[in-house]
Design a protein around this nucleic acid. Structure first.
Lengths: 240, 240
DNA sequence: TATGATATTTGGTCTGACCAATTTGGTAGG
DNA sequence: CCTACCAAATTGGTCAGACCAAATATCATA
């Protein structure tokens, strides 16, 4: 229900976006004019215009009469994360870990909110997703199951702000995180243990316990994504 | 360096956006066609087209040949938060609290990262912003000082993912949160105490202590935003 | 050299048109 | 009566060329 085939203006937008992300235009530097771009891409100005507009909404360009200018990356929208990861054939491991780090914090909170405030119905759905995770642990469906659990947790809490952020993060990260860490090869035993703990926490309505389970899950995910090497280096960087 | 005057397509986009957020179009329902909208607004199809495109990028509309359809709010981008708050003359207090809740979690993490990994230079800048906060506590500049502190902390950590999320959240929330809680009337004594603790934590490089200080800061902010009534009801909803 | 007027460039919008995909409505067949 | 299928109307995607206002660049003048 999401995307259709790639449109012309989308292609141009993607190309320009990657150019900016690659640093081809320094912040403040002027981009080619719409007319210029139209000529280069052998297309109409209207089409180019839509592409440039898209850049502006990503926070990558500041478009004004007299000239459109590039914008520093650190001031952009979350929506540049996906393209940024896709820039290199193998996603930047440091970035992937940052994503898992923040996602872990937010999902932990989501779990706490869900268990504390969730309706019985929503929590039942969450527990069903936990069952699916337990049965699929070790298989190629593991990634899908984990994603399903996350969605259920985010949905159960009725916390709109949290949902919106998680939407964006998921949309940007999903595919690329999978590229770095094949969830199917996560230790199934560990996964099932976490799933059981989480399920028990939900059943007995223990938000803190549920949050701790999610935290452990992300420890596993991050360690797994980082590969066998330097497991220790990635661990929680602060001893709270 | 941000916005110029309001463009016609932006006006139309804003109107459509608010219509959808107000629930005028149920999810899945078809929006008027571009030609129809152009006629209604006495404008050209190209202009309307840019507006509708904007909606799609907000995640509010799914635009496809045959018809553009509305999308459920909970599946949108974070960028709808601002408009959602602006829908009512007085921002929804529950939403504002949700924002402060999530912002608190993220800023706590940002502080921990900053203190753990920040360069001496960046941390010095952060401490300068703390000084500004202490001197402005109780004045009308308090809000600006707090925002400055947040920006410095987010900047010191060199955590891109966190920065991007905080960008979006700040962009959406800034103005509206201020409407709900006048920062100038926050207890200056409490504020200065937190500032001192935070400063000491930075100086001695104690991430956990810095995080705790930020957490206390947000306790104050949330209690203040919620108004004098039901201080207790708003408090941290989970006992971790 | 500094400054102010002028010419050029650039984005914002309009008009009207064509194509391709979808939706819709009706029709023939079960 | 319902279903499967086909044709017409609708809708989005793109193109072309044009005009205006704001910003920039250029150059003559003080």
């Amino acid at each position: 229900m999401a995307s259709s085939r790639r449109t012309r203006s989308e292609s141009i937008a993607a190309e320009l976006r990657d150019d900016i992300l690659r640093g081809q235009y320094r912040p403040g530097e002027r981009l080619p004019s719409e007319r210029d771009l139209a000529a280069r891409h052998a297309t109409s100005r209207g089409t180019v215009r839509e592409a440039v507009k898209r850049l502006e909404q990503l926070g990558l360009a500041d478009i004004q009469p007299g000239g459109t200018r590039a914008t520093p990356v650190h001031a952009c929208s979350l929506d540049v994360l996906g393209p940024l990861l896709a820039l290199e054939p193998v996603p930047n491991p440091a970035l992937v870990d940052q994503i898992l780090e923040v996602l872990g914090i937010l999902m932990r909170f989501a779990a706490e909110v869900a268990v504390a405030d969730g309706t019985a119905e929503k929590l039942a759905e969450t527990r069903r997703s936990i069952v699916r995770l337990r049965t699929s642990a070790g298989s190629s469906d593991t990634g899908e199951s984990i994603a399903g659990l996350f969605r259920a947790l985010a949905d159960a809490g009725d916390h709109l702000v949290l949902q919106l952020i998680l939407n964006g993060l998921r949309e940007q990260a999903r595919e690329h995180v999978r590229k770095t860490c094949d969830p199917g090869s996560i230790d199934p035993v560990e996964l099932r243990r976490i799933a059981l703990d989480l399920d028990a926490a939900i059943e007995r309505r223990r938000p803190a316990v549920a949050g701790a389970a999610i935290e452990r899950l992300f420890d596993v995910l991050r360690r797994h994504a980082a590969g066998r090497q330097d497991k220790a280096g990635i661990r929680r960087r602060i001893a709270s």
